[in-house]
């Protein structure tokens, strides 16, 4: 990128050149812009669900079995137009999807974020201090990663029982290892660089070296891995909910909605499963598009 060989005597580049560059290259990439726009729309829709949804799908008083399985575009006698139809319990599907999107995003994002923080702390400690702790942690990570995530989550959820909180715990238990591994690898590389030696030589406190020097330099790859894992987490949450081990039936996420409608798929009542499926695909697609581009932009080899 900038100033490769250091040939210019003065290099008057604007202060925040790096972030401008990130933004500009984002703006230049149609896929990235599309992915970002998609994500923003979905996030807004999830955030504003109580405002924009025609119905509160959690409020049993608003739901009537008499409205069950209405086709997309039909209006119920109550006066609500069911743009995407209703499900077997008479819930407005658009409302259910908006609320379900919320749950899917909250569960997978919080699980990813908690896993990120745990992985960051453990990975940094392992990379910086090394030794037995490092060896132990990396064995644990190896074992953890070699077992399929779905299996771990299934076992944990069977043991702990269902619930949103437990679902998050199960997902954190899977994803922390990926973060720990990548952070540890980056920290090992960064730790050997001379700016860390300089910090040691300047007698800076250890925590300061780890947090102010190492941590910030480990963040870009963590962000990239974070988006990949976020997309996976969305899918895993959907899978677990589909299997009935995730969120409670009264507060369906996208995965549970898909599961609910699955039985009707072959009998022509496609919409009950199909539209939540579309929403899930859009969410994963958006995260992946942004993540892919983030990976290009933050590629350490193109940096500095």
């Amino acid at each position: 990128m900038t100033d490769v060989a250091g040939t210019h005597a003065t290099a008057p580049v604007a202060d925040d050149a790096k972030w401008q560059r990130v933004l500009r290259s984002f703006a230049e990439n149609k896929q990235a812009v599309f992915g970002l726009a998609l994500l923003v729309v979905l996030l807004l829709a999830a955030l504003l669900a109580p405002v924009i949804a025609p119905q509160n799908p959690y409020d049993l008083a608003q739901i009537s079995f008499l409205d069950a399985m209405m086709r997309p575009g039909e209006a119920s006698p109550g006066g609500i137009l069911h743009v995407l139809g209703t499900d077997s319990q008479g819930r407005d599907l658009l409302s259910a999807i908006l609320y379900g999107l919320r749950i899917s995003i909250v569960v997978s994002a919080s699980a990813t974020l908690i896993a990120l923080v745990i992985g960051l702390v453990l990975g940094l400690a392992a990379g910086y201090f090394g030794g037995r702790f490092d060896a132990f942690l990396m064995r644990l990570v190896d074992v953890q990663i070699s077992i399929p995530g779905l299996l771990i989550a299934l076992l944990l959820l069977v043991a702990m029982g269902p619930g949103v909180g437990k679902l998050v715990i199960a997902m954190v238990a899977i994803y922390w290892a990926y973060f720990a591994r990548i952070v540890r690898g980056v920290a090992l590389v960064e730790r050997k660089k001379e700016y860390v030696e300089a910090a040691i030589c300047l007698a800076l406190p250890r925590w300061r070296i780890v947090l102010r020097h190492l941590l910030v330099n480990c963040l870009p790859p963590v962000m990239v891995v974070g988006t990949v894992l976020l997309a996976r987490a969305v899918l895993l949450e959907a899978s677990l909910s589909y299997l009935g081990l995730g969120v409670p039936v009264t507060q369906p996420s996208l995965g549970l909605l898909i599961a609910n409608g699955f039985g009707y798929l072959m009998s022509g009542e496609y919409w009950v499963s199909f539209f939540p499926g579309v929403a899930l695909v859009m969410l994963i697609f958006g995260v992946n598009l942004v993540g892919d581009h983030l990976r290009d932009v933050l590629n350490p080899r193109l940096q500095r």
Binding site: E194, Y195, V216, N217
Partner: peptide, 29 residues
């Protein structure tokens, strides 16, 4: 002693923390 003995490094590209401003690099210690 630690402060009295300082080191200047070989590689000007890895010896400065790329994510800190000059004022922090010089002023932190």
């Amino acid at each position: 002693y630690a402060l009295a003995v300082q080191m200047i490094f070989q590689d000007p590209y890895t010896s400065l923390n790329p994510r800190m401003r000059i004022r922090d690099i010089v002023g932190e210690a």
